[in-house]
Design a protein around this nucleic acid. Structure first.
Ligand SMILES: [Zn+2]
Ligand SMILES: [Zn+2]
Ligand SMILES: [Zn+2]
Ligand SMILES: [Zn+2]
Lengths: 151, 151
DNA sequence: CTAACACCTACAGTAGCTGTAGGTTCAAGG
DNA sequence: CCTTGAACCTACAGCTACTGTAGGTGTTAG
């Protein structure tokens, strides 16, 4: 019944590396599981679920701190879910900002690449554009927000 | 004539931190500039241009290795610009992939956020979706490529 | 002359893992 | 029963591209 998995099986189940699980334990995202006689971690089904939650949230770009908050909110099922939704909306906003930023990059890169007609480097528009970006350009490279995780 | 700038002025001119310039020098992206009697760096106009090039390329998301390559290609003006363009197109492709990835994230996040009607955490769709992502979902969180710099 | 500020080096820290070294435990085959 | 190889253990270094800090020196304005 109480099937417990070794860390390798757990990693396989969650689709991550063994070291990642140990890392999550180290930073307190996962509880320290019981050990076998030989000191090897044994994960219960509940641990695997928690790990899957973390990995899914990571795949959606949530930073670990947000995931930490979501997990502790999840432990209080009777509280209103406002805080949960705020975290999710913040992440959505972050992703949207990031998309906007990258779309601006894309258009400048595209313009750059298309202007090159393939000659000598001395005449290459790519080098030229990179050298001569002035504030006359419409896009001023506004800095985006913090990073979306790329697992 | 030969106006040389201190590192603080150079940083101001390039729109970056003083430490960033020292870092670029340390990793060999910028040549080591001459020093004043009191051992302070003095940057020539040429150095500032090189720095501006680096900052602009960074603002477009080019990784430092790509910038290193672009800079050394820029030193051979008579070579064909194929290699230059390849780097730029690779960056464009990277940005496009990243956009695609983030758009998929956005739609999943949006769906999640919209499904929540604001009740108890126990009933919150956000927590639920994060817990129960199965491979039945259409979007499998394909991993994007390496990071676009976010200064 | 002195106070404030810019500069110097060297190193630690950020996020989120990933890889490595050097050692133990476990499961299967002979 | 013993051995071999895979999987596990801890501890720590490394990745990107900076950013911050400590502790000291140089420069400049009043
Ligand atoms: Zn070209
Ligand atoms: Zn530009
Ligand atoms: Zn909710
Ligand atoms: Zn999902």
């Amino acid at each position: 019944m109480a099937t417990r998995l070794t860390i390798g099986r757990a990693a396989e189940a969650a689709g991550c590396k063994v070291q990642t699980i140990r890392y999550y334990e180290q930073i307190g995202l996962l509880h320290r599981p019981p050990r076998s006689e030989g000191n090897q971690r044994l994960f219960a089904h509940e641990d695997i679920r928690r790990l899957a939650f973390i990995r899914h949230a990571r795949a959606l770009g949530f930073p670990l701190q947000a995931i930490r908050d979501l997990l502790s909110l999840g432990d209080e099922p009777d509280q209103p879910c406002e805080a949960v939704d705020a975290i999710a909306r913040a992440q959505l906003g972050d992703v949207e900002q990031r998309i906007t930023y990258l779309q601006a990059l894309r258009s400048e890169l595209k313009r750059m690449v298309e202007q090159c007609r393939g000659g000598r480097i001395a005449d290459c528009r790519v080098i030229e554009v990179l050298s001569d970006h002035t504030r006359r350009e419409m896009f001023d490279h506004a800095v985006p927000r913090s990073g979306v995780g790329s697992p």
